[in-house]
Amino acid sequence: MTIFTINDVRKTFITGEVAEEILKGIDLSLQQGEITALVGASGSGKSTLLTIAAGLQPASDGQITFNGRNMTDMSQEQIRKVRASEFGFVFQSAHLVPFLTVEEQLILMLEVSQSKLKKGQQKKEIGHILKLIDMEHRKNAYPASLSGGERQRVAIARAIIHKPKILFADEPTASLDSKRSKDVMELIRNLTKTLNITTLMVTHDEEMLAYADHIITMKDGLVE
């Protein structure tokens, strides 16, 4: 089932008098519960496309439809609400809140998404996710005391704790070594399959493509 569609999306950046078209009319759709990988050379526009799809920057033209709703017509506040409750994000770096423990990072995300879970259920859900990422024993640790791999696992847990419909991952393994990259991708795949989450992922790493259901290659702002 198609949950997310991008129709003829264009993005032009204007610097001074120079206008540069980064996306030149992109069409794609995401199927529920599947992982779609966006690949391409640097500058091909894949990260720009991901951030536009995630509502982090507006498109210059075109239409984005999520769950039957036209996101290009939404206000900033409506987009924020969608980001908070229906999207999950994993970035190149973990970007954890430095003064919150692992457990508190997840509580914060549940609060931001206005999850209706009661305290007891929240604890249970957090325990469950921490078990899935094998971080139960580090739930009271602060980000500074975690390894790079552990931090990225916590970032993934934060991205899915509120059961988003779509997970946007921008090179989630870029800062990890080969072994940890595989572990993280295994984790993303298992979690998205278990929770039926749709994933749009940007990657440079060809080894990671093995975990994707669909691969979209971009070149010079167009889908090849």
Binding site: R83, F87, V97, V112
Partner: peptide
């Protein structure tokens, strides 16, 4: 600033 940006990205008002 970076932290605020990330918090805004994940939906914090």
């Amino acid at each position: 600033i970076g932290l605020y940006g990330i918090l805004k990205a994940i939906g914090v008002k």
